[in-house]
Amino acid sequence: MTLDAKAGRGLPPHTRNEQWQERALLCRWLSTLFAKELDEATLKAYLEGEAEPLLALLCDHEQLAPLVARFNQALNVLRLFEQPRLELAADFATLFLMDGRTAAPPYASLYQSGQALFHQQPTERMETRLRAAGYDVKKDFGEPADHLAVMLDYLATGHERLGEASSEAEREEIQGGLVQFIDEELTPWLPTFAQRCQEIDTASDFYPTLGQLVADYCATLSTQASAPAR
């Protein structure tokens, strides 16, 4: 079927299961975006508007709508680039892949107070969480567990587990754990990360916008995850 992206807006309120499913989708989508650069096919899909349904889901949160508009504008500008994939890859590198001091390194350990080093307590805590949930970071990803993409994937997995929980008590425990995870492991550094994404000169606004989106979206998850759903 073809999907009318705009149809997503103003959708009737979702059920609890649908809400978890959406959150899992969005978290994993964002994780994908921060895990690596876009390849040609994926970029083409973005430029052809394939992300619209996902953006529509984000627009469920009123405060994210301006960022979604900004993201769409970034895509419009990208369409004018001669080599958009390379420019985006260079932006990605500039923001996330060079040294871990300047720009916006996507690692929780580097935002701790005190000395900024890789593989610090946030990595350890994240590994403990993953182990407790029965997971490891895939070897070929080659990143420590405090990488933003891993944390977002953990969040996606958590929301999937909510849907699979066999009892209300289990659901509550998972839900509580997720809120605590966002508050303790993401909220302390994502606003700084997002801010740094805005301060660096990039060719496109694609990643700076995403940097802000991920921080703001996680903030909505933190406040709404604890709110009762239908």
Partner: peptide
């Protein structure tokens, strides 16, 4: 909508995940 999303091009924008069973 969600069913449609799963079957649409948007699904191709979402990677397979970074976690493996430990």
């Amino acid at each position: 909508f969600l069913k449609g999303l799963a079957a649409s091009g948007a699904a191709s924008l979402i990677g397979p995940g970074l976690l493996a069973r430990s």
